[in-house]
């Protein structure tokens, strides 16, 4: 081993240690936020983590698996309604809301995957949207979920703020861990081969359908869980808030602004999204217009988003998913 190589190795290991320390500080600060921060700050970061989670999953689908969905609100609504129906109608404990929600979400994803996975590109995109819209209309007319009137979720008042925050924190950080581990795994290699040249990948034995389906199911599972928490935070659910396209709009903005196809992107995007929404709280329309303009400008000027741009410029590699050949 030459001296230069040894020095380089030393430097990379120092950077690795520094990265771990910074990560630990951020995690501890964020994890203990409700015990030292104000209620307002806690609520803002609770939203950041929940939006980060749905953004991260949308990024997994659109940025890595080539599945641009505009129907993620279907899973958020399913999660919210599972919690509402089980705790309000059946008076079951909250945990069952999550369990049943996750199961229903994944089964629903599996069922709709049969038709929508036959569609390509734009057909898939709009197909997912039609399904979510159909689900909305169905819920408005469904007696079992109290039609369009919806439910208050009183179980939300039984849990303390810090409990909801920590659950959101876990879901947000969990989404990062899931996507990072997934990309480092064999499946991640498959995804990248698929993204670079799907034809060549298929010839080499990559199972495109199976790979995409696994990503879709993982995203469905995690988004449903996030949906449970989003509606516990709102404490009220109606079909128009559960299945609104606004959830997916948020995902798109978060991922585009932060950087599609990067792990850091949705984290940065979620912070910007939630802060902008808070600043323009009294003017929800204006914040959407500003986000729309920012998104168009970024797609044209910096298609890889803020983090993609910074990564290129400063050669950052925060969540390394690169593979190194063992010596």
């Amino acid at each position: 081993m030459s001296i230069i190589e040894a020095k380089l190795n030393g430097r990379t290991s120092q950077i690795a240690i520094a990265k771990k320390i910074v990560a630990a500080i951020i995690l501890i600060t964020m994890g203990t936020l409700p015990f030292w921060g104000s209620g307002y700050l806690t609520n803002v970061f609770l939203l950041v983590f929940l939006y980060m989670s749905i953004g991260m999953m949308w990024n997994l689908l659109s940025g890595y698996a080539g599945l641009t969905s505009l129907g993620q609100q279907a899973f958020i609504g399913i999660g919210g309604y599972s919690v509402a129906v089980l705790t309000q109608v059946y008076k079951m404990s909250l945990i069952w809301g999550f369990v049943v929600g996750a199961v229903v979400g994944v089964v629903f994803a599996l069922v709709i995957s049969m038709p929508i996975f036959k569609m390509n590109g734009a057909y898939f995109t709009i197909g997912t949207w039609i399904i979510a819209e159909a689900l909305y209309i169905f819920f408005v007319k469904w007696k079992f979920v109290n039609y369009g009137i919806g439910y208050p979720i009183t179980a939300a008042y039984d849990i303390p703020m810090w409990g909801l925050y920590l659950a959101s924190f876990a879901v947000g950080i969990g989404s990062i861990v899931i996507v990072a581990l997934l990309l480092k795994s064999r499946l991640g290699l498959t995804l990248m081969a698929m993204r670079d040249d799907s034809g060549a990948a298929e010839v080499r034995g990559v199972k495109l359908y199976r790979t995409k389906l696994i990503c879709y199911l993982i995203a469905a599972f995690w988004v449903t869980i996030t949906g449970c928490l989003l509606f516990l935070n709102q404490a009220y659910i109606v079909p128009s808030s559960a299945f609104t396209i606004d959830w997916t709009i948020a995902c798109v903005f978060i991922v585009i602004i932060g950087g599609i196809g990067t792990i850091e992107g949705p984290i940065v995007g979620a912070v910007i999204y939630v802060l902008l929404r808070q600043i323009l709280y009294g003017f929800p329309g204006i914040s959407n217009i500003i986000l729309g303009i920012i998104a168009i400008v970024i797609i044209i000027a910096a298609p890889k988003g803020i983090m993609g741009y910074l990564n290129n410029k400063f050669n950052l590699d925060i969540f390394s998913i690169r593979r190194k050949i063992k010596k």
Partner: peptide, 11 residues
């Protein structure tokens, strides 16, 4: 391109 039109629709 699809996302640009999506942005326009929101605006």
């Amino acid at each position: 391109a699809l996302l640009v039109t999506f942005g326009l629709s929101i605006i």
